Amino acid sequence: MMATAHPQLVFVHGIGGLRDAETERRQWLKALATGVRAAGQPELVSALTQGWLADVRFADYSDLFTAKGAQGGVAGEELDPSEEQVLAGLLEAMVDELTEQFPPESGTRDARIIEQARHQLDEASSGNQGVGGLGRRLVWVTTTLLQLPGLRQGAQWANAQAFALHLSQVARYLSRRGDKAALGAAVRSRVLEELDPVRPLVVVSHSLGTVVAYEALHEYEGPVALWVTLGSPLALGGVVLQRLVPRPPSCPERVGVWLNFWDRNDIVVGRPRLADWIAPSRTGVKAQTAPVKSAGVWTHTATKYLEHAEVAGPVVEALAP
């Protein structure tokens, strides 16, 4: 609980298209208020939504990706081989999670679609595809995956090209080579410029935003009362975990509490492995991981997570005076 200067609540988004920061801030705040009510604390909703409880910010870096993405292509520009491998790894993780939900032996249409996607992914990842060839073949995989009713109806992508383009943002952010490293630095700067080191801070990050927040908070010099990660790919082995900076991966030193939430139906998260594979800070803080359960196949949205009492309760408690 905070009893000093007016605290900050900062939202850090994940993959996707160009965003309107104020609209997103209101949507995330509305979902969080729903979760606060579910947590049995309706008396704090007005204080939260009116800004009395905290200064609520939405750290928007979406234009740093979409400016280059406007021309088309897998990511608006050809991915280098390392970035293509990250995109392939993300799709492989998604297919693995979907296979658990729809095993081949079930014989359902969904299971057949997933097996087709796996076959295409295996073909795309084998052999020499030439520059950009793997990226183009990975679009075939996303085309197949979007035949799944849950993804087609619940996800945010109009087509497979957009699906691949947005997933590739993870690869582009994690690129450390030459000029491309500047993109990651610019993204982190967008987050850090929203933070005031002299005030208490709660950070709620989602998807790629958890990777961004991980690295940004390692640079941050102010106190972080609570860091919440939602639908995080941080523990996706060689795809994300081994590319994090600093290495070896550890909890940022200024974080007081780290809560990580994953949904069983969220097909792009590392689930409980995050708590095992990222070391504690020098003060012993490490991720405390807990599952939540949402309806539907596609649960990888920040607002679905924020509506859960398990997520919203600790956030509002950390902000309350």
Rank of each mutant, 00 (worst) to 15 (best):
M1T: 14
M2V: 15
H6E: 05
P7N: 07
P7I: 08
G16A: 06
L18H: 13
A21W: 05
E22C: 02
R26E: 10
Q27F: 10
W28M: 12
W28A: 12
A31M: 07
T34G: 10
T34W: 11
G35S: 01
L44F: 09
A47P: 08
Q50G: 12
F58Q: 06
F58H: 06
Y61E: 07
S62C: 06
F65D: 01
K68S: 15
Q71P: 11
V74D: 07
V74M: 09
G76A: 02
D80H: 14
P81H: 00
E83H: 07
Q85R: 14
L87N: 15
L87A: 06
V95Q: 00
D96H: 09
E97L: 11
T99G: 12
E100G: 13
P103T: 01
D110A: 11
R112S: 12
I114Y: 00
I114D: 02
R118Q: 11
D122G: 14
G127S: 05
N128L: 15
G130P: 00
V131K: 15
G135M: 09
W140S: 14
V141C: 03
L145V: 00
P149Q: 10
P149L: 05
G154E: 09
A155Q: 09
Q156C: 12
Q156D: 14
A158Y: 10
N159P: 02
L167R: 02
A171R: 08
Y173Q: 03
L174M: 10
R177K: 14
G178A: 10
D179K: 11
A182F: 09
A186L: 09
S189L: 13
E194M: 09
D196G: 11
L201I: 09
A225K: 12
G231M: 07
S232P: 00
Q242F: 13
R243I: 02
P246G: 00
P252V: 09
V255P: 11
G256Q: 13
W258C: 07
L259V: 03
W262Q: 10
V268K: 11
V269H: 08
R273N: 11
A275R: 15
I278C: 03
A290N: 14
S294F: 09
T299D: 00
H300D: 01
T301D: 08
K304D: 05
H308P: 10
V311Y: 00
A312T: 00
V315K: 07
A318C: 05
